[in-house]
């Protein structure tokens, strides 16, 4: 019951926040003069001859508030402009590149979160023991590795030395032919999932083979981050009075750590994990570029270096909305884990 009212409260709060996001993006758009704003809707260079018509059509020289609502109407009808880099509308581009990144996130996030929490717990439970020293040293190394360097080294070893073992890009050429053939239905555009749904195991295998290296690259850096956070959070939790109570009850050390300490230590990690997922879905520019893995990050990078304004703004809007939604999910999980949030009590 309390949870439901909390949920409703949070959902209502979502509306003004989303409006805030659109106003910010719209504000950025206002930095450009009207004819440049009109470029958003130019799909063909020949249209440049009658740019004034486009300005008229989208009301780009009307008062600001009027423009905002026209623009918002366009956004709601799915028209974010034309991405000249990839030659399709921005909305299409997002839906085209999102599955690749989502595929990456689906594999990387659980590995990062579960691995980080597990290592952090172990490290805190054996504070100053060999396990702790090794994982802390590992975390410093992992966290300090530059992604572009580490990705290249992985490619050198697993693509170069073991020739073609874990290749870059999303699919091999021959498998790509299968995927784009008529018999293969792309239900979700997540290659491994579509492979399973079409009962085409060569596609599944190939998709997984291509995803190994980017997932490793992402995991190494972020596991280190989550592990360090979890460790410090666990150590704080282990020093609290209720841990002594739990031990004085006669509970085995495993229960004390995995139940009493970890449940409390999870709360800050949860917040960061949510943002981590959002950040990965938002495109991991460097990782995707290194592995030529054509996802949102790759697209964002291309649009940025080509000053494709409509795409950049469309992407920014997408990121903003995604972050707001992730924030909502994190808050709900937060309430699930911490009764003080759910029941509206004060956090001491």
């Amino acid at each position: 019951m309390e949870f439901r009212s909390y949920l409703i409260r949070r959902l209502l709060l979502l509306i003004p926040v989303l409006f805030g996001v659109t106003i910010l993006i719209f504000g950025l758009l206002q930095l450009f003069p009207a004819y440049q704003r009109a470029m958003l809707y130019v799909t063909d260079p020949r249209q440049l001859n009658n740019i004034d018509e486009i300005i008229q059509m989208y009301g780009l020289n009307e008062p600001l508030w009027k423009q905002y609502f026209t623009w918002l109407g366009q956004v709601f009808s799915g028209n974010l402009g034309w991405s000249k880099v990839v030659g399709m509308s921005v909305t299409d581009a997002i839906f085209n590149f999102l599955p690749a990144t989502l595929e990456l996130a689906i594999f990387a996030t659980p590995i990062i979160i579960i691995g980080g929490i597990w290592l952090g717990t172990k490290s805190a439970a054996h504070k100053d023991g060999p396990v702790d020293h090794i994982s802390r040293a590992g975390a410093i190394v992992g966290w300090s590795l530059p992604t572009f360097w580490f990705g290249l080294v992985l490619l050198m070893i697993f693509y170069g030395y073991f020739t073609g073992l874990f290749p870059p890009e999303r699919l091999s050429t021959d498998i790509s032919v299968i995927v784009h053939s008529g018999e293969f239905t792309r239900y979700t555009k997540l290659n491994f999932l579509d492979g399973i749904l079409n009962w085409e195991w060569s596609v599944v295998f190939d998709a997984l083979r291509h995803i190994v290296l980017p997932v490793i690259t992402l995991s190494v850096v972020n596991i280190a981050f989550i592990m360090r956070l979890m460790r410090s959070s666990m150590l704080e939790s282990l020093g609290r009075g209720y841990i002594l109570t739990a031990r004085a009850k006669g509970l085995p050390e495993k229960t004390v750590i995995n139940k009493h300490a970890r449940r409390n230590a999870m709360i800050p990690v949860l917040t960061v994990s949510g943002y981590l997922f959002a950040a990965i879905v938002n495109g991991v520019v460097i990782t995707e570029s290194i592995f030529n893995y054509k996802g949102l990050g790759w697209w964002a990078w291309r649009t940025a270096i080509n000053l494709d304004v409509s795409s950049i703004l469309g992407f920014a809007l997408f990121s903003g909305v995604l972050f707001v939604l992730t924030n909502l999910v994190v808050d709900l999980l937060y309430a699930k884990f911490d009764p003080r949030v759910r029941l509206g009590g004060s956090i001491k």
């Binding site: 209720y242 002594l244 109570t245 739990a246 009493h260 409390n264 911490d338």
Partner: peptide, 13 residues
């Protein structure tokens, strides 16, 4: 224990 506030685990009933 001395501090009833910290002796109870906040996330369990």
């Amino acid at each position: 224990f001395q501090e009833p506030g910290s002796a109870l685990n906040p996330v369990f009933t």
